[in-house]
């Protein structure tokens, strides 16, 4: 089992950038306390993209927030870039974040950019926080703008004046300026139209090829399938299946994964199997 690439501990080809072991997260206090994540183990290597698929309430966002230190883990270990961050204090977290090792891309680019700040200001913010000088920060931001195929004249505009696709590429550029080793993306293409979706996904692929580790969180298997090396399926707070993307899609083992694959809208299998889905749903309910 341990040699199996599908095993949770398997870290892929490079050095692991993220190692999560037996992560457990609870919300609420005392009687209202409920478990959101249980026994989640996942590791992501340099130059690897891991898709984390789950529906609303499956705990996928909590997973991201735990890795970013925004929620407290009640058990388990988290190692980022070799550093054990499990019991970190606020101050230690801030120092870690300031280094820009881990970054996060939100689903909704409009809401994750300050509407009153010019694009340039948003782009250089992580660098200014690090204490980089303004001129240097602007110069670096421009370099990354080119990497996400955006024009420099966008720098003076406000987020509201950009298209959705441009905005999402700006938020990608913003996380790139600190040269992170790990980027967590929460539904980065869900709000985008086809053309922009393709463009953002291509940028992500290029990033992966340049050695960055990506965790791609989504409810939609389809949007992850094209870029993920491995896929982890999160169901009710537990990872029920981890395997290479192709394996998960073509030979799903868990009932939920099968329903997920059967539910994802596809073009060519348009005459979808309604009865099959009904049967899977019935099995999940038991």
């Amino acid at each position: 089992m341990s040699a199996d690439p599908a095993a949770p501990g398997y870290a892929g080809p490079g050095r692991p950038v993220l190692e999560v072991t037996d992560l457990e997260v609870h919300y609420g206090l005392r009687r209202r306390r409920r478990r959101v994540l249980q026994g989640v183990s996942l590791s992501v290597a340099r130059g690897e993209t891991v898709g984390v698929i789950g529906e609303t309430g499956s705990g996928k966002s909590t997973f991201a927030r735990a890795v970013l230190g925004l929620v407290h883990a009640s058990a388990g270990r988290i190692r980022i870039d070799g550093e054990d961050v499990t019991g970190y204090s606020h101050r230690q977290w801030r120092a870690l974040r300031r280094r820009g090792v881990v970054q996060y891309v939100f689903q909704d680019p409009l809401r994750s950019l300050d509407p009153d700040l010019a694009i340039e200001e948003s782009l250089i913010e992580p660098l200014l926080v690090q204490g980089v000088g303004r001129a240097e920060a602007v110069a670096r931001a421009r370099r990354y703008l080119a990497r996400v195929h955006l024009d420099e004249d966008l720098l003076r505009r406000l987020p509201g004046e950009l298209s959705g696709g441009q905005r999402q590429r700006v938020t990608v550029a913003r996380v790139l300026v600190t040269e992170p080793a790990l980027i967590i993306l929460d539904e980065p293409v869900s709000g985008l139209d086809s053309a922009n979706r393709v463009q953002v996904l291509q940028i992500l692929k290029d990033l992966r090829d340049s050695g960055v580790a990506l965790v791609f969180i989504s409810h939609d298997l389809g949007s992850v399938a094209g870029v993920a090396d491995r896929i982890a399926v999160l169901y009710e707070g537990e990872i029920v299946e981890v395997a290479a993307a192709r394996t998960v899609i073509n030979a799903p083992r868990h009932v939920y994964t099968r329903l997920l694959v059967g539910s994802a809208p596809t073009l060519r299998s348009a005459a979808a199997d309604r009865a099959g889905r009904d049967a899977l749903r019935a099995r999940l309910r038991v």
């Binding site: 298997l221 389809g222 949007s223 399938a225 094209g226 899609i249 994802a264 596809t266 073009l267 060519r268």
Partner: peptide, 10 residues
């Protein structure tokens, strides 16, 4: 869909 979606694998 063919390049990035499920269709590519299916």
């Amino acid at each position: 869909h063919e390049q990035y979606g499920l269709d590519r694998f299916l």
